[in-house]
Design a protein around this nucleic acid. Structure first.
Lengths: 236, 236
DNA sequence: CATTTGCAGGTTGTGTACAAAATGAGCATG
DNA sequence: CATGCTCATTTTGTACACAACCTGCAAATG
C-alpha cells in the first residue's frame, strides 16, 4: 500500500515539474494539506523529501519555496549533465548492447528519424519525439548497468527552471516549444551519430558527441533564459 | 536558531558515516527519539532527509535501515566520482586560480608533502593527511565556481559502505587504515601532478591524472571489499 | 501434519493541539 | 519623514495520542 506521504510527494513533484507552481512560490503546509485533504504531517514529509531532491528551497521557521534556478545554475547543471551523459555513452559503447537492447535502441532511433523527416510537425508529433528522446537517453543509461550513474543523470534532468510557460525542466524535450525545426534535425543527427558510435563500440566518439549534444542544449537554454531575463527587465 | 530536526539530522548523519551503526542496522524511531531526548517528529524528519541523501533504505510501514552498499555499487559510485572529479580538475585548470586560492592550494600541497616524506607516520599524522586530502579536493571543487558540481562530488563521498572498522565512507582518507605507506606516497605523487597541471593551466592533463587518481582508489577499495567478503564467507 | 486463522505486541503512519518563531501592521518617537 | 517598537496574526516546529499495519506465535481446522 502507498502511504499518504508518498502520494503527496508524487503529486507535488509532478505539479512542480509540470510548472503548476512558479519558481519562488511559497508552499504553505496548511494550504497544501487542505488542498489534498490530508493533515499537515504527510505534507511536511513530502516537502522535506522534495527539498532533499533539490526542487525546493527551505529556511527554518520560514517554510519552503519552489527553487528558482538562475542562468548560471542552469549552466553549471548542464556542464555536469554533459559530462555524465558522455560517460554513459562511452560505457554503453564499451560494454556493448545485448540483442534485445540493440533492437529496442534501433527502433527508438528509427521512429525518431521517421518523425523528424516527416511532412508535418504538429504538437502531438513533437510530444512523441520528446518521449522518444527520453527513451533514447534512458536506454543508454540502462546499458551502462550503473544505477548510480543513471540516478545522477536523472537528477540533473528534474530541476525546475525559471519560467512562465514551456521551459519547465531542464530536460530539453520539455523545452521544445523554444526550438525551431532545424534544431530538432540537428539533435536527431547527433542521436544518429551517438547510436552509430555505440553500436560500433567506439567509446571515445560516443562520449564526445554526446557531450557536445548536451552542451549545445545547455547553450540554447542559456541563451533563451537571457532573452527572458531581458524581457523581464524591460517590463514596467 | 537550529531546529531539533536539523540537529538530529546532523547527529545521525555523522554517526552513520562514522560507523556508529552497522550497514543493515534498523533505526527505530522511538529508540532514536529516546536516545536523543526528543519526540518522534524531528526524528522522522531526519530519517526522511537521510533517506533522500541515500544513506538509508526505507520500506513503508517497515522502517529505515542503514544502507548496505555492495561491491558493485561501490565500483559504480567510483566511476561517477572519478569522472566528476576529473571534470572539476579540468575546470579548475581552465578557469585558473586566483592569488589567494593559489597560495592556499600550495600550502595544502606543501604540508602534505612534508607529512608524507617525514620520518614518522603515526595515527595523528595520518589523520592530518586525511584532513588535508579533503581540503585539497575541496579547493579544486571550489575553484570551479560550480556549486552543483561540488555538491554532486560531495554526494559521492558520503555513502557508507559495509564495514566493521576503518572503511566507513568512500572518501579514501577515511579508509586509510587499509593502506600501506607506499600508497600514500603514490597518492601524494598524483596530488603533485594534479596541482602542477592546474597551476600550469593544463586542463586535459589535470583531468586525466585526477581521473586515474580516483579510479585507483576505487580499485583499491574494490579489492579490499573482496577480501572482506571472502573473510565473511569463510566464517562458520 | 500442514495450513491457516486469530491474536498480541510492537512499529510506523496520521491527525491534532499547542509552543515557538517570523511576519507585518500600526503607532510612537527621534 | 524615517526609524524602531509592540503586538496581533500567521506559519512553522514539536509533542503526543491514536489508528493502521507488519510480525511472530499459537491454536484451530482440514
Amino acid at each position: 500500500m502507498v502511504t499518504r506521504a508518498e502520494a503527496v510527494t508524487r503529486r507535488l513533484r509532478e505539479a512542480i515539474l509540470a510548472g503548476g507552481y512558479e519558481p519562488g512560490a511559497r508552499l504553505s503546509e496548511v494550504a497544501l494539506a487542505e488542498g489534498m485533504a490530508v493533515s499537515r504531517t504527510p505534507v511536511r514529509a513530502a516537502l522535506s523529501v522534495l527539498f532533499a531532491e533539490g526542487l525546493l528551497d527551505y529556511e527554518p521557521n520560514c517554510g519552503y519555496v519552489v527553487r528558482r534556478i538562475s542562468r548560471d545554475d542552469a549552466a553549471h547543471i548542464y556542464t555536469v549533465r554533459a559530462t555524465l551523459e558522455g560517460l554513459a555513452a562511452r560505457l554503453a559503447a564499451e560494454i556493448g548492447l545485448g540483442d534485445v537492447e540493440r533492437t529496442g535502441f534501433e527502433a527508438i532511433l528509427g521512429e525518431m528519424e521517421q518523425l523528424v523527416s516527416g511532412d508535418t510537425w504538429e504538437a502531438d508529433q513533437r510530444q512523441r519525439w520528446g518521449e522518444l528522446n527520453i527513451a533514447f537517453h534512458g536506454a543508454i543509461c540502462a546499458a551502462t548497468r550503473n544505477d548510480y550513474l543513471a540516478a545522477s543523470i536523472q537528477r540533473t534532468r528534474t530541476l525546475p527552471v525559471l519560467t512562465e510557460r514551456g521551459l519547465r525542466t531542464f530536460f530539453a524535450e520539455q523545452a521544445v516549444v523554444w526550438w525551431d525545426r532545424a534544431a530538432y534535425r540537428r539533435s536527431q543527427d547527433d542521436h544518429l551519430d551517438i547510436g552509430e558510435a555505440i553500436l560500433a563500440r567506439q567509446g571515445a566518439r560516443a562520449e564526445a558527441v554526446m557531450r557536445e549534444h548536451i552542451e549545445r542544449a545547455g547553450r540554447l537554454i542559456h541563451r533563451k533564459l537571457a532573452i527572458r531575463s531581458e524581457a523581464l527587465l524591460a517590463l514596467p
